[in-house]
Design a protein around this nucleic acid. Structure first.
Lengths: 338, 338
DNA sequence: CGCCCGTATCAAAACGTTTTGGGAGCCGGA
DNA sequence: TCCGGCTCCCAAAACGTTTTGATACGGGCG
């Protein structure tokens, strides 16, 4: 059932039928209802490809993941927030997966120049991100989840990793901790650097030296958390507090603490960053976990709204959102030795 | 840069250029390389919408998630496997999110009749799934991840939940456990029923009665696992072994066991189902976790291949894959009291 | 009565591909 | 010489929309 058939069926022209369905004013209200009725009765739905070809708009946003390290537990949460918000406007998400990192830029370029999407969501940026540069060069609309170091105009949403980490670190210092370990994310990513900066800042503010042995990088998994924390706990003096980069990391750290015969919240404290996974609740853990918390699902939803703004022509310079991160103190943090 | 411009630039017709680029035989090899060179030099890429309109093929598969309960930790893993395999053939994944469950069928119908995708991936089915019925009625190609009770032909891939659960249960029985608890998935889903069937089967085989108080349903989260296990551990006689539906559930059960002053692997045993998350490793836990294991990422990859087969016209009746599930015994299982 | 204007409709162009149906030009065989 | 077949290329149709430019029809107004 296509437009021509539907029009013939109604004894109207394609033009009129198309306008009636798309809410143009210059069509008689009686005709409009008659068309609408026939369309739903005959199950007519415009062919998406034809409409896209004619309008130039696609009704989809793109997001690229790398097969190796792209997909994680936060992925589904972010997509859930993004998709839920976009779905309300009948906009789809187009996911491309790239195996070879060298193919990444080409994948973006392809999606753009073959007009598969109206806009792109960029994530996990580096300070000097080549993807950002590419999209800016092409003048293609996009929203960045995270930040770069660029001064050129771009739309972004990020959480304040630096302040969050600084605040958590400072809390630990103020409650008597001196040997604080930071289990950070993968090296080179902006948010990793921001967290390190916040860590340094808080230490510096209180005149504490940074111990490089107590700073480590890795992906956010329980195993990494376990391995890194275990190694650190074997050092003397051993760390009395951990900042865990994610809840997964925190699980591993917790295990390492127990394995060392120590008690979390008493011998050793921990503050973890919590992306608010529905299946892993910091509040109901035993002991309950102190966290810096920011819902990544909410971020996804908001990014969807920012995409709409970008597509509506709002200048990218006006679209900067830095979300504060709340700190929730629970049982995993206790006084330190000082 | 479109085809017409490119053709004009080369002094050739659109036909020839199109054929040259798409590898048709009736074009001179010299011409073909000349065209290819010009195309890449000028950065020509065919407009996806136009090509789709002309060919009727889209180059994308669809998958629908419900905003409320659709996205979980397994989602990203499955998408990773699916996308990685599809990406190799330059096929994209189109994700739609539906907020209102009543809108779900309409969303599928819309994606199909407006020709947004070539095929669909269906997941988390119920025995009598209305989505399956819809797709079969419409004659639309799809692959089901999971199973229904239907005898009509459809392509599916599933893991053998029944056998896996039966085997795990039986192992526990054989090692002296009698009061075994099953923490199952959400009520009504096929895999939940399969696991329950496997559980019943193993108990029956050994002449054990099923204790309804030791069977519970819920989503796979640590909190659910904790809550359910805690309640069960307060009963007398208390369960001496748990079958946890997922690694998240297992984390909660583990916590409940510790909270009750008991030791996992000694006082209480546990076998968890492991979807093989890269960020949560059963082998490196303390104690290491006995599991029934099946990579959901691998399943995603295989589903992609099955989609290709369906689209290539292979009869759905020939596309049934039931994956065996391996059981890996580790430290979380020990002898029971009998 | 003639003119203009708003309403409601239409035929045809445009979007950028692929595919259909030919059609030159050339070579070899009859 | 003629013809069939092969190689290489082309003009135009087709895909199903939206959008452009026009047009018929009344009615109000001078």
């Amino acid at each position: 059932m296509n437009l021509k058939e539907l029009a013939a069926n109604l004894g109207l022209s394609q033009t009129t039928v198309s306008r009636a369905l798309n809410g143009y004013p210059e069509v008689n209200e009686a005709t409009r209802t008659r068309v609408a009725e026939a369309a739903s009765r005959l199950g007519y739905r415009p062919n998406a490809s034809a409409r896209r070809l004619a309008t130039g708009r696609v009704g989809a946003v793109g997001i690229v993941y790398s097969a190796s390290d792209g997909y994680g537990p936060h992925t589904s949460e972010f997509l859930g927030g993004l998709g839920s918000r976009l779905g309300a406007d009948e906009i789809d998400i187009l996911i491309s997966t790239v195996d070879d990192p060298a193919e990444e830029l080409a994948t973006y370029r392809r999606a753009i120049v073959s007009k598969k999407v109206d806009a792109i969501v960029l994530h996990a940026p580096r300070p000097d991100d080549t993807r950002v540069a590419l999209l800016q060069d092409l003048g293609f609309p996009f929203v960045l989840h995270g930040r770069t170091n660029t001064t050129r105009s771009l739309a972004w949403l990020d959480i304040d990793n630096e302040a969050a980490t600084a605040r958590a670190t400072e809390h630990l210092i103020q409650t008597g901790h001196r040997d604080i370990a930071l289990l950070n994310g993968p090296r080179g990513l902006t948010f990793t650097l921001h967290r390190e900066a916040g860590f340094r800042q808080a230490l510096g503010k209180h005149g504490l030296a940074l111990n490089p042995a107590l700073m480590a990088n890795g992906m956010f998994s329980d195993e990494t958390g376990f391995r890194l924390a275990q190694a650190m706990l074997e050092r003397r003096p051993r760390p009395t507090a951990f900042l865990a980069g994610s809840m997964m990391t925190a699980l591993g750290v917790f295990r390492a603490i127990r394995s060392a015969g120590l008690t979390l919240g008493k011998d050793v404290s921990m503050i973890a960053h919590d992306d608010v996974f529905p299946y892993l609740n910091a509040d109901t853990m035993v002991p309950s976990m102190s966290t810096t918390r920011s819902s990544i699902r909410a971020a996804g939803g908001r990014v969807a709204e920012l995409l709409s703004q970008v597509l509506a022509g709002k200048p990218a310079d006006d679209i900067h959102e830095l979300w504060p991160v709340e700190m929730v103190l629970r049982e995993s943090t206790g006084p330190g030795p000082h």
